[in-house]
């Protein structure tokens, strides 16, 4: 235990003094981590926003089940219950003939006189307005509702929804691929930068091996170094990201009316945590990989 603590002290001392001693390398490493993760972060923010945007769009999508005219009130209630039972359905709202007409008039606006007199023999059907959890389910759910006795037809703007779904899918795939590629690139850049530092100290590693240092004894200071580099780089990139995103929010949110960008508070927490973890992992991985070759003596 005593020895463990002593070693820990040595590892920390050694790790940090190496960072201080190779100042130029330290700065270069931190800068490259920061740059790579800043780009990663910018894409991540874009993806997060696209996601929230598609969620907004999806939640607004609804389908309408029109009911036949000649059915009893009991049957209407029964149909409503049946629809509610379909998995994926989040809400079912009944719209009576009168309501339909009122909405129709509203839509007509100052031409509402065109609908005058329809009250007596209302041609508009009663309907259920159905919201679903996921836009991808709309087609299946609509088919299922059609099977229910007493349902005349179902509409949800097939063309628009299908196209929208296609676009959303492409955006997500492209975005995730870009993030993945950038992640790999970050690891390569960082492990290369750290490799330069390890290479400069290969003599030291060699000597340690001859003295009888275990591989882990040699490795720990380098891992600590890598984690510190990754962490500091990641935190700096988050700071820059917050500045940039805040600036963009100021400009864009005043102009966009339909969709709101995610507020700063909502993403900072997550990104801070993710990036700290990713930065530390990348740093440890990078230095671990770089030192491997020099341990084989």
């Amino acid at each position: 235990m005593d020895m463990l603590f002593r070693n820990l002290k040595y590892f920390l001392k050694e790790g940090f003094s190496n960072l201080a001693r190779n100042r130029l390398m330290t700065i270069a490493s931190i800068t490259s981590v920061m740059a790579a993760m800043l780009i990663l972060g910018l894409f991540l923010v874009i993806i997060l926003n696209v996601n929230s945007l598609t969620n907004q769009v999806e939640s607004q999508l609804e389908l309408k089940a029109f009911l036949k005219d000649n059915i009893s009130e009991q049957q209407v209630t029964q149909i409503g219950n049946d629809i509610k039972k379909i998995p994926g359905v989040t809400s079912v709202v009944f719209e009576s003939k009168e309501e339909a007409l009122r909405k129709f008039k509203q839509q007509l606006g100052d031409k509402s006189y065109l609908a005058e007199g329809l009250e007596k023999d209302n041609p508009l059907p009663q309907s259920y307005i159905v919201k679903v959890k996921d836009a991808g389910l709309m087609k299946d759910i609509s088919n299922e509702i059609k099977q229910i006795n007493g349902v005349d037809k179902v509409s949800y703007g097939q063309d628009v929804v299908d196209k929208l779904l296609g676009i959303i899918k492409i955006i997500r795939i492209v975005g995730l691929s870009i993030i993945f590629i950038l992640f790999i690139i970050s690891i390569v850049i960082i492990s290369n930068t750290i490799k330069l530092g390890v290479f400069a100290r290969r003599r030291e590693i060699n000597i340690m091996k001859y003295i009888g240092a275990t591989d882990w004894f040699i490795r720990w200071p380098f891992l600590i170094e890598g984690v510190v580099l990754g962490l500091v780089g990641a935190l700096l990139s988050v700071a820059l990201l917050v500045l940039i995103y805040g600036y963009v929010l100021d400009i864009i949110n005043n102009k966009l009316i339909v969709f709101q960008l995610l507020p700063l508070e909502k993403i900072v927490g997550d990104i801070l945590v993710y990036f700290s973890v990713i930065g530390a992992i990348i740093g440890a991985l990078g230095s671990g990989l770089s030192i491997k070759r020099f341990l084989n003596v």
Binding site: E204, N206, I207, K209, Y210, I211, G212, T214, D215
Partner: peptide, 22 residues
């Protein structure tokens, strides 16, 4: 993983000294 302990039972001196310069 036992090699380090073998090396601790031996002291080594080289032609080029191999000291840590810093």
């Amino acid at each position: 993983r036992e090699i380090p302990y073998l090396r601790r039972s031996m002291g080594v001196v080289f032609q080029d000294f191999r000291l840590l310069p810093n």
